[in-house]
């Protein structure tokens, strides 16, 4: 099973990297870009757990280590 996890900054938390990329895209003529947010993408290969277990264990991994929930939120999906 493959867990695909996206970790991004929470709404309202300043994202200087996203801002810099946003400006650069606008400078390149991509005027339609209104906002850029930059985060992390992680893939975890899981073995020996049911989909249900995986769901709660990946959530625990995100809460305990993969995301800092003071500043970041996360979402993930599981692929069999």
């Amino acid at each position: 099973m493959l867990a695909k996890i996206h970790v991004t900054l929470k709404n309202g938390v300043l994202d200087p990297q996203g801002k810099a990329v946003h400006h650069a895209l606008n400078d390149l003529g991509f005027a339609e870009v209104q906002e850029v947010s930059i985060g992390k993408y992680l893939e975890l290969q899981l073995d020996g757990v049911s989909e249900e277990e995986a769901e709660s264990r990946v959530r625990a991994m995100c809460d305990r280590l993969l995301a800092n929930t003071v500043i970041e939120s996360y979402r993930f999906n599981l692929e069999l």
């Binding site: 938390v13 300043l14 200087p16 990297q17 810099a20 800092n68 003071v70 500043i71």
Partner: peptide
């Protein structure tokens, strides 16, 4: 210490990058 929850808040990348 913030990551361990012994102090409040978090430290992010400087706004200047």
């Amino acid at each position: 210490l913030t990551e361990a929850g012994l102090l409040p808040g978090a430290l992010m990348r400087n706004r200047s990058q």
